[in-house]
Amino acid sequence: MEIGLFFGSFNPIHTGHMIIANLVKETTSVDEVWFIVSPQNPFKKNKNLLHEFDRLDMVNAAIGDDYQFRSSDVEFNMPRPSYTIDTLTVLQEKYPDKKFRLIIGEDNLSSFPKWKNHEMILEHYGLIVYPRPNSEPSDLSSHENVRMIDAPEVDISATLIRKLIKEEKSIKYLVPDQVEALIKSKGFFH
């Protein structure tokens, strides 16, 4: 079974994330997409970042009963900051029967060679890359283990969503309905 791993702070998870996850599942050999919720980086304090368990709850609300999506808190118990290669190694050890692929935005492709053990990620896992606005061209886009997918350039910003919430304006259609309900009931981002 092939699993696409979609890492993010998901602060909050929004419709753009869900569109990309669904397109990866529908247009590649991936059977499931796992949302890997990244914990707070202790070196990058962000007062707008909700607690990791609240963000995991929002991801679970967004997924609902879609059996082809899954959330993961694997990084919550790892040393911080956690590097992608370390998370991939932990997941591969835990699920030796699964083939993992990393889902990243095209805006991260040009800086990908700066990632820790990027060659190992490319060789053993490979990348599924979705388009992002204003992305720099990268030689990696033609690499045999990089799969560029056709998807809309969804430019929904979690920053904008948080700003609208603070201003008590509607976030309808920007986040899944279940996520909006959870944000309202818990008073997130006020």
Rank of each mutant, 00 (worst) to 15 (best):
T84K: 07
E2R: 12
K169M: 12
I36A: 05
S142I: 15
N46P: 05
L164W: 11
G105S: 07
E93N: 15
S72H: 09
H17P: 08
G126V: 02
E144D: 13
L23F: 00
V146C: 09
K184W: 01
R132S: 08
Q92T: 13
K166W: 09
D139N: 13
P81M: 10
N60H: 12
M78G: 06
I63G: 00
H118A: 08
I128G: 11
L127C: 00
H143K: 11
G8C: 10
P96G: 10
V154H: 07
S138K: 13
E180S: 11
T28I: 12
T15L: 06
N60D: 14
Y173R: 08
L164Y: 15
L160K: 13
L164R: 15
V74M: 11
I165N: 04
S82M: 05
K184V: 11
W115F: 08
L5W: 03
V146K: 12
Y67G: 00
S9D: 11
P39I: 09
T87S: 11
V33R: 03
T28K: 02
V59H: 07
P96L: 07
V154M: 14
E106R: 15
F76S: 08
L50E: 15
R101C: 01
A151C: 14
N46I: 06
E2T: 12
K166A: 14
F69S: 01
I165R: 13
T87A: 04
G4A: 11
F100H: 02
K44S: 09
D97R: 14
V129G: 09
A61D: 01
S72C: 06
S82N: 14
I63L: 03
I36D: 04
S142L: 11
D86Y: 01
Y83T: 09
E52L: 02
D150I: 15
F69H: 02
D54M: 05
I149Y: 00
H51T: 00
A151F: 01
I36F: 03
H143A: 06
N77P: 04
M1G: 12
I171P: 04
M120E: 15
F188L: 13
F10C: 09
F112V: 06
F35Q: 08
E123F: 01
I20A: 06
G126C: 05
I128L: 11
V37Y: 06
R101E: 00
L122T: 07
M78P: 06
D155C: 10
Q68G: 05
P137R: 09
E52C: 10
K116A: 00
N117D: 14
I128P: 07
L122C: 07
R147S: 14
D73V: 02
D73L: 02
T27F: 00
W34N: 00
M18Y: 04
V24N: 03
K166S: 14
S157G: 10
V59Y: 05
K169I: 01
P176K: 08
G187E: 05
L23K: 12
R101N: 05
I183C: 07
R55H: 13
L56I: 04
E52W: 05
D150L: 12
N145L: 03
N117V: 00
V175L: 11
V33S: 02
N46M: 08
Q68T: 07
F10V: 04
Q40R: 06
L50D: 06
E75V: 08
